[in-house]
Design a protein around this nucleic acid. Structure first.
Lengths: 132, 132
DNA sequence: CTTGACCTTGTAGTATACTACAGGGTGTAG
DNA sequence: CTACACCCTGTAGTATACTACAAGGTCAAG
C-alpha cells in the first residue's frame, strides 16, 4: 500500500498533520494526488522527503536552506557547471560548520577535563571556541 | 578604553543596537553598568559573549541552547558531577550533529562526483543521507 | 442510516528572534 | 547655546515555522 492519508503520512514522517499542509503550501513537498473525495494521498517519496526535512532542521538548517539542498538533486539541473558550483559552495558551508562544531565540542571537553582534575578554569574556553 | 556605548558595542559584536537590548532582557548577557546619563557601558567580555552567541546561532543553536552552553562555564557550578553529566550530554549532541552533517556533506560530494562523470544519478543521495 | 473518526478549507494564534518606531533626554562641536 | 548625533524607554511590527481552530464534507462500522 504505497499511498497514505494525511494522518498516517504525518505519523510516518514524524510531523503534525498541519505541517504537511504547511510544507505543501511552501513548496517543500509536491502536492499529493487526491482521491475522489478530495482526500490527499501521499506517496512514500514524500514521506522520505519530510523525514529529511525534519532531520535537517534538527541540524540547524532553515527551511529555505533545506529547499535549496533538496533542489540540488531533483530539479532540471540543466547547467552542470552551475550545479557543481552551487553544490560545492554548500559543501564548503557544511565543512565550515563541522569545523566550528568541533571547536565547541573541544571547548566543552576541556571544561569536563578541568572539572575532573578538580581544578577551576581560569578562563572560559567556550567563548574562545568560536573566535575568528 | 574598555567600555563601549551601545552603537559601538553593537558594531564590534556584529549585531544591531536593539539586539543588545533584546539579549539583555532575555538574560543572555549581563546588564551593563550605566554612566551618569543612564547610558549603557559595555565591557569587552560582553562583546566577546555576543560574538559567540552570533556564531553559535549560525551553527544552528537556538538562543536557549546557547544560554545553556554559556551557563556551563560561568555560573556557580556547585555540583561537579552534575555539571559533568550536563556537559557530556551536550558533547554527545554536538558529536551526533557533526556525524549527520558529514553524511549530508558526503551526499553532496557524491552528487558532484556523478555530475563530473557526466552520469545522471538514479536516486537522490541527499534524501538517504539522514535516514535512521 | 446514524455515529464517529477522519478529511477538507480558510483563518487565526503561538514561539522565537529580532527590528523598527515614537517620544523624549543627553552630550559635544561650532 | 543651538544643532545634531547619540542615548533612553516602551511598545508594536516582521519573518520563520509551525499549531490550532471553526465550519463543513466523507466514509466505514454497526
Amino acid at each position: 500500500m504505497p499511498l497514505l492519508t494525511t494522518a498516517k503520512a504525518a505519523e510516518e514522517a514524524g510531523v503534525g498533520r498541519e505541517t504537511l499542509r504547511f510544507y505543501e503550501r511552501e513548496g517543500l513537498i509536491e502536492k499529493p494526488i487526491r482521491g475522489n473525495s478530495g482526500y490527499r494521498q501521499y506517496p512514500p517519496e514524500t514521506i522520505a522527503r519530510v523525514r529529511f526535512i525534519r532531520r535537517a532542521k534538527e541540524l540547524g538548517f532553515t527551511l529555505n536552506e533545506i529547499k535549496d539542498l533538496l533542489d540540488l538533486s531533483d530539479p532540471p539541473n540543466a547547467e552542470c557547471a552551475q550545479f557543481r558550483a552551487h553544490a560545492k559552495s554548500k559543501i564548503e558551508d557544511i565543512r565550515s560548520k563541522i569545523g566550528k562544531l568541533r571547536k565547541v565540542e573541544r571547548a566543552l571537553s576541556s571544561l569536563v577535563d578541568t572539572c575532573e582534575r578538580s581544578g577551576t578554569p581560569r578562563k572560559c574556553p567556550i567563548l574562545d571556541a568560536l573566535e575568528d
